[in-house]
């Protein structure tokens, strides 16, 4: 368990990592990464029960699957700063011969990663498999996932949502990054999905919402409530209302920075807004 200040410092440092990594290679996805920074920091440092070190099977610990793999910068930074691999390795992001591929992969043997993601809509199915394996292994730990809201337009999600509801996969807690934005504009403009709460509930899920999805305390209590609701016959969905690009004023609340890197001046501004806390990589 970390103090409130330690978590806040980590959030700021992860934000710095994200914009620096993306700027360095002039590619990557800062918007969604910044919007999910508090969530991943909270999940890995305050919510999940984790063993020391990393093994693929993850028996006896909670698991996390990132379905929207393009927010790899925040995932890598949080994993590195949790100790899965050296923080300095963040400097290799998206470069040749790196374990930190553009989208996360097991292929290069990066500790902390259990599945490749990037082609959207596949993570929940994988997480269900891992959750079923936990049940077979009589392992009472939980499986967490994160999905983009736009990502839910992929049909495979609804096969998975249907399965988890029908089969009572109640050791699964799936969070939706509900920022209302996708590449071509707002999710309402591109493909209005109506009420996600109603949809998940209709498929037999317990649905919780966190209105302040960039507030650490709100996220932690939301996730704790989700844990309390697990093991009761239903999978749990957490609708996390976030702001894309949160923490960098010119990136916040817009889809413009979904997959665009800041230039030198923009980087300087972003870093000024997020002063170094734990030391840059």
């Amino acid at each position: 368990m970390s103090s409130k200040q330690e978590l806040s410092d980590l959030v700021v440092q992860v934000r710095r990592d994200i914009v620096r990594m993306v700027h360095d290679v002039n590619s990557g996805h800062p918007g969604g990464s910044l919007g999910c920074t508090e969530f991943l920091v909270a999940l890995y440092n305050e919510v999940m029960e984790l063993k020391d070190g990393f093994d693929m099977d993850g028996i006896g610990e909670d698991l996390f699957f990132l379905s929207n793999g393009h927010i790899s910068p925040v995932f890598y930074s949080v994993l590195a700063r949790k100790g899965y691999f050296p923080v300095k390795e963040l400097a290799t992001f998206r470069k040749i011969d790196s374990r930190l591929q553009g989208h996360p992969t097991t292929h290069e043997g990066l500790p902390g990663i259990r599945i490749a993601s990037g082609s959207l809509g596949q993570g929940m199915s994988v997480a269900i498999g891992a959750a079923e394996a936990k049940k077979l292994n009589k392992d009472s730990h939980l499986v967490f996932t994160l999905h983009g809201d736009g990502e839910l337009q992929e049909g495979q999600n609804w096969e998975a949502i249907m399965y988890a509801g029908a089969k009572g996969v109640d050791n699964l807690i799936s969070t939706v990054d509900y920022n209302g934005q996708q590449i071509d504009g707002s999710t309402d403009e591109v493909m209005n999905m109506g009420s996600l709460r109603d949809k998940f509930e209709a498929f037999g899920w317990e649905v919780l919402e966190v209105e302040e999805g960039n507030n650490l305390e709100a996220i932690i209590s939301g996730l704790q409530l989700a844990k309390t609701n697990s093991g009761k016959g239903k999978p749990v969905c957490l609708l996390l209302h976030t702001s894309m690009g949160h923490g960098v004023d010119f990136m916040a609340g817009t889809h413009e920075w979904h997959g665009k890197a800041p230039n030198d001046e923009q980087l300087a501004s972003a870093l000024e807004q997020n002063p170094e806390t734990l030391g840059d990589y």
Binding site: D57, V126, I128, G129, A130, E132, A133, A160
Partner: peptide, 11 residues
């Protein structure tokens, strides 16, 4: 996808 996930846990 579920098959891929079941391998995580040794199946």
């Amino acid at each position: 996808g579920i098959a891929a996930g079941l391998t995580i846990g040794g199946y």
